[in-house]
Amino acid sequence: MTDAALQDRAAGAIMGAFIGDALGVGPHWYYDLEELHRDYGDWITTYTDPEPGRYHEGLKAGQLSQAGIILRLMLRSLVDQGGYDEADFCRRMDEELFPLLDGTPANGPGGYTSQSIRNAWRKRVQEGLPWGQTGGNADTTEAIERTLALAVRYAMQPHELATVISNNARLTQIDDVVLSMTVAYGAVLGLLVQGHKLDKNLSGIMMQLVKTGQLPFHAVTHSDLQPPRPGDPDPPRAGRFASPDALLTPSYVATAATDPAIAIEPAWKVSLVYGMPCAIYHQLPAAYYLAARFPQDFESAVLHALNGGGQNQARTILTGALAGAQTGLAGIPQRFLDGLEEGQTLRKLAMELATRVGV
């Protein structure tokens, strides 16, 4: 593994997420697929404007939603500080985002403010609570959408990766299951940046990291999921998450994606199989499936994520990061980079972060 290849995958993951966010700005949250096709045709291939009266109204094709804006804020903090500095990240949220919000959904940069950010704003601005007391019970992927940058930065340091992702995610979301799935996605993305494949073996690699105390999940079974033997002691907890199941999901889904006897055709219908809503347990299996099915085809991965409707923006962000980590920045079609507003600036930030991976 060369430094250039590692950095290309790291930058690809970041730019894949930004591209996924901007692709979702127009056709976001169409749960009626006939309505989606009426407004955007049978197959969306590029950035689009939102329709009047829809989410993100007023934005233009290629612009970022608030999820992308927060990811950019996180990226700038990481680059400026050289790593995760929670005080710096929180200061930027206080100074750069929160003054632009009013606590309502259809408001703020990007035209829409998500549930977990609205909750944090109320606790921080209206109630005057300190950071650390701002988390809520949203069961969504909103923490992943910013902490994926942490997964890239600490891709070579899994224990640090899990710690900083858990700490940052907890600022807005406190449900343990959501946190465990958020950390698990970060662990998957980190391994893809390292150069591992999203396949049937990936979960075994993560389970070994559990056994060595590098990922904070509790496991009783052996690494091959065989039962404990009589007399085996209860293993010490490596961390707070009671079950390693969030680490097992990726390989099961990847196995299904490559099994010729299991057909989801066309692939965008994965959104119907795993569910179109916002919750993390709908979003992650679909993103894992598409990234595993199209490991070297960034365009197919993100467009099938996008055309599945529902919470397609989050699905495309998550898929874009996983797909970009596999293809590398060099494998992302140039038209997606060219059509992204401030694409050169975002690419420079992604490359600067990529040079710090493993440092």
Rank of each mutant, 00 (worst) to 15 (best):
A10M: 11
A17I: 06
L23A: 03
V25P: 07
D32Y: 09
E34C: 11
R38T: 09
Y47G: 06
G53K: 14
E57W: 02
Q66D: 15
Q66S: 13
A67W: 10
A67P: 01
I69K: 12
R72Q: 15
G82W: 07
E86N: 04
A87N: 14
R91M: 03
L97M: 12
D102P: 04
P105K: 11
R118E: 11
V125T: 08
D139F: 13
T140N: 14
L148D: 01
L150Y: 03
Y154A: 05
E160Q: 11
A162Y: 01
V164I: 12
I165D: 00
I165L: 07
R170T: 10
T172N: 03
Y185A: 03
L202D: 00
G204K: 01
G204D: 04
G213N: 08
G213S: 09
T221G: 00
D224M: 11
P228G: 00
D232P: 02
P233E: 00
L248D: 04
L248V: 01
L248M: 10
A254V: 08
A256T: 05
A263M: 10
A263N: 11
A267F: 03
C278K: 02
A287C: 07
Y288T: 11
R293L: 14
F298E: 13
H304C: 06
A305V: 11
G308E: 00
R315T: 03
R315W: 04
L329H: 04
A330V: 07
G343W: 07
G343D: 11
L353H: 08
R356T: 12
G358A: 06
